[in-house]
Amino acid sequence: MITEEGTRNARSGIGNPVTAETRLPVLEDPTKVAARDARELSRVFLGRLGALEEGTPEFQYIRNTLIELNLSLVRFVATRFRSRGDEMEDIVQVGTVGLIKAIDRFDLTREVEFTTFAIPCIAGEIKRYFRDTGWAVHVPRRLQELRITLAKAVDELAQVLDTDPTPAELAAYLGLSEQEVRQGIVASNGYTASSLDVPLDRDDEAGGSYAEHHGGTDPALDGVEDMAALKPLIARLGERDRLLLRMRFREEMTQSQIGLALGLSQMHVSRLLSHILTRLRGHLLLDA
């Protein structure tokens, strides 16, 4: 517990010394500090943190203390997401990452309360966690958001119609095209995944699993070995050549877009890419 006198001492720099150069209060258990005192102490500790070199013992002490002082803030934000079904401890851990980012990015000169700055950071980190881990397959964010909208619309219309609404009824209700609604319904199937080992017919033990009756060898597997062989070859290329490959094949930019970004003509970009790919192909054939 921090007394009013202790808080005043913290503001004026009077208290138990952390080092010989600075005086800050030493807290036996920062997680038990009252919320009001935690806000005051956070301001003092944040002010000192900005003057320290990262990685020093004092920097680590103050940063860790700030995290513990504000864990109640993480739990407060985490309770908003309790209905998502995940373990609360997992949500708190993710929210703590947001708190740490808020501490590292906070700027006292903005004259904004740390809690005002930290809450969106914590909530954003938790939302990002659900967005990145809640889907069994990658689905564009637009369709992820549409899934939520459709789920609400289905519940609302079902109460009015006394039956599940059709895609056409959902489209009219939401002011969307029927095609957009169908895309959202298909995307919803990517939220969860079933095991391929589930029996095709649960009532027939001899029916076998889905995996036994469907699928085959993916022809793309033949390219895995080539990709493994290409990796060290690409690492030997110059910085500009690696940049060209990344822009063309990872970022999927057109040759014209690459030329515009690098100040080159589309024809020049085409020649450079052709030369790079010829070299890589030649190395692959030599190593085969």
Rank of each mutant, 00 (worst) to 15 (best):
T3F: 00
E4H: 15
E4L: 15
E4W: 15
A10G: 00
P17K: 11
R23G: 08
P25Y: 06
T31V: 00
T31L: 00
K32E: 14
A35H: 03
A35N: 02
L41Y: 04
R43C: 01
L46N: 02
R48T: 03
G50N: 07
G50S: 09
L52D: 05
F59P: 00
Y61I: 03
N64Q: 11
L69A: 00
L71F: 02
L71M: 11
S72R: 13
L73W: 00
V77W: 06
R82H: 12
R84P: 05
M88K: 08
V92K: 04
I100N: 04
A102T: 04
F106H: 09
L108V: 10
R110I: 06
T115S: 13
R128K: 12
W135A: 06
W135K: 02
H138M: 09
V139C: 05
R141I: 10
R141H: 09
E145C: 05
I148H: 14
T149W: 08
A151G: 03
A153V: 06
V154N: 02
Q159T: 10
Q159K: 13
D164A: 13
P167V: 05
A168D: 11
A172N: 07
E178V: 13
E178Q: 14
G184C: 02
V186L: 15
V186D: 14
N189D: 08
T192Q: 13
P199V: 05
E205H: 06
E212P: 05
H213S: 07
G216T: 05
T217A: 08
P219D: 09
E225F: 04
D226T: 14
A228L: 15
I234T: 07
G238Q: 06
E239I: 12
E239S: 11
R240P: 06
L243K: 09
L243I: 06
R246C: 12
A261S: 15
A261H: 10
Q266D: 10
M267F: 08
V269M: 02
V269A: 04
L272P: 05
L273V: 08
H275W: 09
I276Y: 04
R279N: 14
L284M: 15
